[in-house]
Design a protein around this nucleic acid. Structure first.
Length: 632
DNA sequence: AAAAAAC
């Protein structure tokens, strides 16, 4: 029973909801962060706000957000227009000029020190050492418990490594340099007779030992458990959300979100989560993972808080982490709705926006924090986010969060949460990669996947188009000239930007999404695509995972992905929640073999077709996919 | 090699 009877509206966290903040933060500015530093409307509550009053007749209102910022540098120089470029002017250095006659130059260090004069000498000052200062009241110091070294583990310390000596390094020499390579002289690889003992790239790759045997064994245990706990979809098909142990308010909130009946992954994991078990769960893209962890998480936090007053400034007890800001925002939209229904509060903590708002929300007190690792770690280090009370941590896209660059910050954050806290790891491609986290943080995890949930039973049609490199732009133009929503993936940010412009020039409403855009623009663009105001979104892999946009019926991979997991996630932006979708991947001729291997790993069947601009097949593929296409 | 994630 929620202690807090106050309705959710009018409570502080509304101010931190990006949907409300959007108008203020947004703006088609180039190269700044969307004017987010301006005065905030919610700061002086009750102040008269002109924008809030309905417009009077003939009332002209100036809307800052609609006017593009004037950028002098963007305008071509007019004739005789002199532009000053700071970088080109050499710095004026007084000391380099010869002293003029009779000029006295003052050099402090040369002059004998005057009586009683204190001179500052860096070397005399003792170094400030945090560890030597007695801990302040309530200050928590992180001290990693000394743990015996694991087998084969090298303790960290630079001293045992021999110093790098420049002079011992063999000299670089151009002698005996390889003859320059001539493309045309060499026969194509397939035809070229194999030299004696030659192993080709694919074979070499297969032979390469990837991990030590110990690591392999440990990982296999995880993998086997994954297989062992598969839940049959029909076993749980009769369940309702109430049967799973969720309270009335949450069940009603779920219905309002359009979730009337639990999907298999939701039905199978809920009981374990509410029980407080550690959970690993794999569920196909679009199978409802957010609700699968979100609803039981809210239920659990609610039970833990039963009878406890919601104190001002209370520390969060649950943490959800995601790999991108957009995904964190999207998760919050679902979890916040569930949490509010029972009087709990959530806040988002992610980068690219000023901290103030997030810190303000934390100061008031929240129960569930949702965000990305960078800012969460940052606020924690600044002492603005107390993680010590977090007893449930969720990692969405867990395998991705274990990749290079993500793993360490994630580990560091999890180490700051309450000892023995519950951990939930979710992903559509949950695999051995999560072993690093499982080993350190999970205790006897329950592992779930839904039996029979394979790509073959999915609702997505896959096609591979083999194209000439030079005809790629035209082919893409032909594919995106269509009615439905199209999501185009590229490998780089620059190409995403370029394609969006190309489509725009061709008269197709296209926008981009990638890490070179400021957060205001990112949020605005994905919002425009969701609402259908732009029918084509060209994105990097920032949009590959987890992002849900209704009714995307065509995914185009302008660049093929490098990894089968990336293929599955990108493809999973369509065909969600049982709807049909189509994925078209463009590859150059020489990539056929690699593509075939990738599809095998992903367990996807897809026909290959050679296409040229203007081919009827392109128009066909641009049309809406039907169920018949899937069975064909 | 690129993308993501902090200022």
């Amino acid at each position: 029973m929620p202690k807090n009877k106050k309705p959710a509206g009018g409570r502080p966290s509304q101010n931190f909801d990006p949907r409300y903040a959007k108008k203020r933060a947004g703006g088609p500015f180039r190269g700044n962060d969307g004017g987010a530093r301006g005065p905030r409307r919610d700061e002086g509550a009750g102040r008269y706000d002109r924008a809030d009053r309905p417009a009077r007749d003939g009332d002209r209102r100036f809307d800052r957000t609609e006017r593009p910022r004037y950028d002098r540098a963007d305008r071509p120089a007019r004739d005789g227009d002199r532009r000053f470029d700071r970088t080109e002017r050499p710095r004026y250095d007084r000391t380099e000029r010869p002293a003029r006659d009779g000029e006295r130059r003052f050099d402090r260090d040369q002059r004998p020190s005057r009586d009683g004069e204190r001179r500052f000498d860096r070397t005399e000052r003792p170094r400030y050492d945090r560890a030597e200062r007695p801990a302040r009241d309530g200050e928590r110091r992180y001290d990693r418990p000394a743990r015996p070294a694991r087998d084969g583990e090298r303790p960290f310390g630079r001293d045992d490594r021999p110093r790098y000596d420049r002079n011992e390094r063999p000299r670089f020499s151009r002698e005996g340099e390889r003859r320059s390579f001539d493309r045309d002289e060499r026969p194509a690889r397939a035809e070229r007779p194999r030299a004696e003992g030659e192993r080709r790239w694919e074979e070499r790759r297969q032979e390469r030992p990837v991990r030590t045997q110990a690591a392999e064994d440990r990982i296999d245990v995880v993998h086997e458990r994954l297989e062992a706990q598969a839940v049959q979809a029909d076993e749980v098909s009769e369940m309702t959300f109430a049967d799973l142990g969720l309270g009335d308010n949450i069940v009603r909130a779920l219905a309002a979100l359009g979730a009337e009946k639990p999907f298999p992954i939701q039905a199978s994991t809920a009981a374990s989560i509410i029980d407080g078990r550690d959970v690993l769960a794999r569920g196909r893209t679009g199978s409802g993972k957010t609700i699968a962890f979100g609803a039981p998480l809210v239920e659990k936090v609610l039970r833990a808080k039963a009878g406890v007053k919601r104190d001002f400034g209370r520390a969060p007890v649950a943490l959800i982490m995601a790999p991108t800001r957009e995904l964190a925002l999207q998760i919050d939209r679902t979890v916040q709705a569930l949490a509010r229904s029972v009087g709990l509060f959530t806040t988002q903590v992610y980068g690219g926006v000023p901290q103030g708002r997030q810190v303000g929300a934390l100061k008031k007190g929240v129960d569930i924090v949702i965000g990305t690792p960078g800012r969460i770690g940052d606020l924690h280090r600044q002492g603005k986010l107390d993680l010590s009370q977090v007893s449930v941590s969720v990692l969405d896209e867990a395998d991705h969060m274990c990749e290079l660059g993500f793993l360490e910050p994630v580990q560091e954050i999890l180490r700051q949460t309450a000892e023995g806290g519950q951990k939930l790891l979710f992903s559509a491609t949950l695999d051995r990669e999560v072993a690093a986290l499982v080993d350190e943080f999970l205790v006897a995890p329950q592992v779930y996947e839904v039996a029979g949930e394979t790509q073959e039973t999915g609702t997505i049609e896959h096609r591979i188009l083999v194209v000439e490199h030079r005809s790629k732009p035209e082919i893409l133009d032909q594919l995106v000239a269509r009615e439905g929503k199209t999501l185009v993936f590229t490998r780089t940010r620059a190409y995403a930007e370029m394609l969006a412009e190309q489509f725009d020039d061709a008269g197709v409403d296209a926008i981009s999404l990638h890490g070179d855009l400021n957060q205001a623009k990112r949020t605005r663009n994905i919002d425009r695509f969701s609402k259908g105001r732009a029918r084509v979104l060209v994105a990097t892999d920032v949009a590959a995972r987890g992002i849900h946009v209704d009714d995307v019926d065509l995914v185009i991979q302008a660049d093929a992905p490098d990894e089968y997991k990336t293929y599955l996630h990108r493809a999973g932006r369509t065909g969600r929640a049982g709807r049909t979708g189509r994925v078209v991947t463009l590859i150059p001729r020489q990539r056929r073999r690699r593509m075939t291997e990738m599809l095998e790993r992903a367990e996807i069947e897809a026909p290959f077709d050679d296409v040229r601009p203007g081919d009827d097949l392109l128009d066909e593929l641009a049309g809406a996919p039907t169920v018949a296409d899937l069975t064909a």
